[in-house]
Design a protein around this nucleic acid. Structure first.
Lengths: 336, 336
DNA sequence: CTGAAAGCGCTTACAG
DNA sequence: CTGAAAGCGCTTACAG
């Protein structure tokens, strides 16, 4: 492999000079610089980034942990992160934890060895217990897409999930719904709380018996939870699913129990994933600014890297937005 | 930061000995090893991987290029790659090219600087023109999920796409279809060729006017192409879409033109993405072993890294499988 | 504007 | 089984 030394010899200078023309940090006489550049060209020299990293202490790489890359949410997060990184000349080291805490721990331990300039952890559940491992990490760490229990030790950029739930509830209340059910994933406490707040504002309660926990975040999980909701209250007029995929299952359950959506049953989803636009009817859903979230989190990190300090430890909540489509209407609206 | 030297001093040995107990390459007297381990523990020492990489020439990292991470196909590829890497103690450097050749080129150039032990490139279109950049890469390179024009310079592990098309065609022929159309993405030549081969085997031709190119790989693209197909031959009884997403668009087009699927129109998709199971009717599709493909490609690469040689330059084609669901039946079958 | 020196933290033969 | 030496390829002050 051709090294900086080789280039230097060829150009008749020392390697420091070569380094200077490459980095541009120190002025080099144009004629010399030209000779060096020619030598680089002729030799096909390309700097050894590992050596550079050892000397500078920076790898120009940031780590990203996500639970998975399947599904629009995290796929978008990954791509948004990559875009920002690219703008700043950084590379992406990706680790999908797959809801496997032990796996996550191993990777975390691996990263600790200063092979990364910063670390962004998106999504909770898996890593929460291992975060203390990061307590004395040599690089800045931030969290995003964290719904609850965000440990105070790190800055977090996330969605105002409580507000998301509130928007869903508010929409159903505006339409006049009173007998409603929630299909909730276990980790979606804030969304549920926000939903309840919307009803409470009108003096209405969403009792625990109207909340049905989905055992898994799948169509089947939503299907089962929706059927449980129908059994608990056959006369309910609306459902809020804390995740689009559950809403899709609810749609299926409605079809099989002869409920037409939205005239017999309104359904509101959450996340506004692309597939909800394909559902029949197209689902009303709460859209969350995931790309902006990812961007802000990475920029925060990169800023900390640049001034080699700790990032400002704050909790930043991005506001979601309701997207009304065809799956919601006032209760008792005749089928068209 | 605590270094190997610090550990050595604390344990009263030299850093070479510390290195030996960590690597386990050289036997160390148990008592000494214990002292060293204690020192590591007390100091919270963790080796600097960058320094190790510079000394060994290996970064324990492999690069993966994919066009995108959105969509089940590449998401699965990424996760499969990661699983294999994890088994071997490697990290994943991810780059999504986003169909942006210039972006891909930049990343490629970046990787060339020996910061990666191997490189897997999944999917074509974007990188094809820049592959020569890799001609004298210092690490092994392999290609996967390559449909056509795989440059002979690198080993490729991919799907037998021609066979995939054949399976689709064969299925429709077995059902008795004769007047068919193909909705094809521009890059899916082999699938189309295979489809035609199945018809040719029965002495039937699939003329060019029955092939409708989708301008984009989206529902809308499939929708438009399907309508073009209906216009060209109102009496066609079956459609093969070279991509599931196009098939979904065709489903929509069938609905809006009053064709019932499958009794009036059979539809076969390709890729067997999870969403086709949710479509109504559930789509018949050609399933491709993408995870196996990714695994084989990475293992090939890792083998080459292990013996620091060039990988065997071969073209390996994995066989797809037809998954029959509810969107296909013999032509003229009465609606149930 | 250019060169001599030291160092980043590790590993790898090679002596003892 | 342990230590002394050299080296991986770069960068960073610091002289001249």
């Amino acid at each position: 492999m051709v090294t900086m030394q080789d280039v230097a010899e060829r150009a008749g200078v020392t390697k420091q000079t070569v380094s200077n023309v490459i980095s541009g940090r120190v002025a080099v006489r144009p004629a010399t610089a030209a000779r060096v550049r020619a030598a680089i060209e002729e030799l096909g020299y390309t700097p050894n980034l590992v050596a550079r990293s050892l000397a500078t202490g920076s790898t120009k790489t940031v780590g990203l942990f996500v639970p998975t890359v399947a599904g629009a949410f995290y796929a978008d997060v990954v791509e948004a992160v990559e875009d920002v990184l690219e703008e700043h000349g950084y590379h992406l080291l990706l680790c999908t934890t797959r809801l496997d805490g032990e796996r996550a721990r191993r990777h975390l331990a691996g990263l600790t060895s200063r092979s990364v300039d910063a670390l962004l952890i998106a999504g909770d559940r898996d890593l929460i217990g291992h975060l203390p491992l990061l307590a004395d990490a040599r690089f800045p760490v931030a969290l995003c897409a964290w719904e609850s229990d965000a440990p105070g030790a790190f800055p977090v950029v996330t969605i105002d999930y409580e507000h998301a739930g509130f928007l869903a509830g508010r929409h159903l209340r505006d339409l006049g719904h009173e007998r409603v059910a929630v299909l909730a994933s276990p980790d979606h406490g804030p969304r549920l709380a926000g939903f309840r707040r919307a009803f409470a504002a009108d003096g209405l309660a969403v009792p625990d018996r109207a909340v049905h926990t989905a055992t898994e975040p799948t169509i089947a999980g939503g299907f089962a939870a929706a059927n449980a909701a129908f059994a608990a209250d056959p006369g309910l007029t609306a459902i809020f699913a804390t995740h689009d995929i559950l809403a899709l299952g609810a749609l299926e359950a409605a079809r099989l129990t002869g409920r037409s959506v939205p005239s017999d049953l309104s359904i509101v989803g959450h996340d506004d994933n692309p597939e909800v636009r394909l559902a029949r009817p197209a689902l009303t859903s709460v859209a969350i600014p995931k790309r902006e979230m990812a961007r802000l989190a990475i920029e925060l990190l990169l800023r900390a890297v640049a001034k080699s300090g700790t990032p400002v430890n704050s909790l930043q909540l991005l506001r979601p937005e309701l997207v009304v489509r065809d799956s919601t209407c006032p209760p008792g609206t005749p089928t068209t």
